[in-house]
Design a protein around this nucleic acid. Structure first.
Lengths: 229, 229
DNA sequence: TCAATAGTGTCTCTAAGACACTATGAA
DNA sequence: TTCATAGTGTCTTAGAGACACTATTGA
């Protein structure tokens, strides 16, 4: 059976988490004209590996190179595609706003909430796939520096905290947040201070190719909850 | 391209973590007679979903029904199979010793260490796949009740602690371990006390279909380490 | 008798959570 | 002047780690 790759590519725009969608051609057999996650088939000729295929497809569909890509799950069953058995390897990808403009006419950044409240229906089971990827992101945000890839490479700590809060969906304690992030050792003080309303804000920098760092405790939210997975 | 499913099925026997292996037929084109992870092709006719296919293949290859199954990753590239591009959905499965006897002649339980020190080479990239699944297990053992599925449904706490220690590869503090596990609320006191050498041991029970419970802190080991994933 | 065993008491340490506080400059 | 902002001080609390201790019984 033929396998595809689908990617949930996310960015932060303003105070909103957005997902990159791709519009299916008007003459598609299934879901013509519908919005969908950018995806495609693995090519035995052109692709060396799944990882490389994921990058190729994103480059092709949207002309974008994410700052972070991770496999979420592989979903395969008889129901998800009207044409019968189909299988897709789902990925979560993150990109910072300043690198996220796509020149492709058939792509669009859409607020994640617009898909969640079903004001924008997606093709196939892509709404479910989006949900899975978002759950992965918010789970990891509770114990890692993963959301850092949504931030610009030079940033103020309160900015990063806002990104975490958008991803987690709840406010965080400033004191604990600062402590955590700084102790992770991924942020370097640039020495620059910016005067806004309050005390001068410290500008930090991270390396775009830095590894995700894990904490030994979860942040906030309900703990010890039962999960299915 | 055709996709397969491979499963790392684990059990605890004595003080050893063991993996179920399956011997490839002597007339296979690739790796004849070699030991491999139990796996097989997804069947568009017989299978409804990947999950169901995973169970079918395990049932067929070994006649076993694991107490727990989880997807680990999907690996696909040009190198892993001498016949060219191939892709496999890797699973981690756990089974308690008392339910782990396989009647199939071409399967064998093998100490994980025997594969790790390369005294038993595996077919294809299966040694790497095993490593990936083991890493998932030991990571989750640090913050969840996952290893419980390796224990009998009625158990003493020191027994469970030994299982955790085998999985993690290092000793744990008795006090902290008891506190953690009991506070998770998955173990029910049967009321039975067994007299051994020391004080009477409390026998606890868990429901084999219970959900994995997560803790809000990691147990032991190096924290805040960089990871690639 | 002695060593292995199951279990408890209790102290320390770390990091999260909570809240108050200062300093600053834009509206 | 007022208020939004960046940042610090410090107290409390929960749970992990460390260690000592009891009680019991098989070898």
């Amino acid at each position: 059976m033929i396998s595809t790759i689908d990617t949930v590519l996310l960015r932060i725009a303003g105070h909103e988490l957005q997902v990159l969608l791709w519009q299916r051609p008007a003459d598609s057999r299934a879901w013509p004209g519908a919005w969908a996650l950018p995806g495609g088939w693995v090519s035995e000729d052109r692709d060396q590996s799944l990882e490389q295929a994921t990058c190729r497809i994103l480059e092709q569909k949207a002309g974008l190179k994410p700052d972070y890509i991770e496999q979420v799950a592989t979903i395969g069953n008889r129901q998800r595609d009207p044409n019968g058995w189909s299988m897709t390897v789902l990925h979560l990808a993150l990109i910072r706003f300043s690198a996220s403009e796509s020149t492709h006419q058939d792509t669009r950044w859409v607020a994640v909430d617009a898909v969640r409240d079903q004001s924008l229906p997606l093709a196939f089971d892509h709404a479910k796939l989006l949900e899975k990827a978002l759950e992965r992101l918010s789970t990891k945000a509770r114990y890692s520096t993963l959301p850092l890839y949504l931030a610009e490479t030079e940033l103020k700590l309160p900015e990063l905290q806002r990104i975490y809060e958008i991803v987690l969906g709840n406010p965080l304690h400033k004191r604990a947040f600062r402590e955590r992030i700084l102790s992770a050792g991924v942020l370097e003080d640039t020495g620059v201070r910016i005067q806004g309303r309050g005390s001068p804000a410290t500008i930090y920098r991270y390396q775009p190719d830095c590894a995700v760092r894990l904490f030994d405790r979860m942040m906030q939210g309900a703990m010890g909850e039962a999960i299915d997975e």
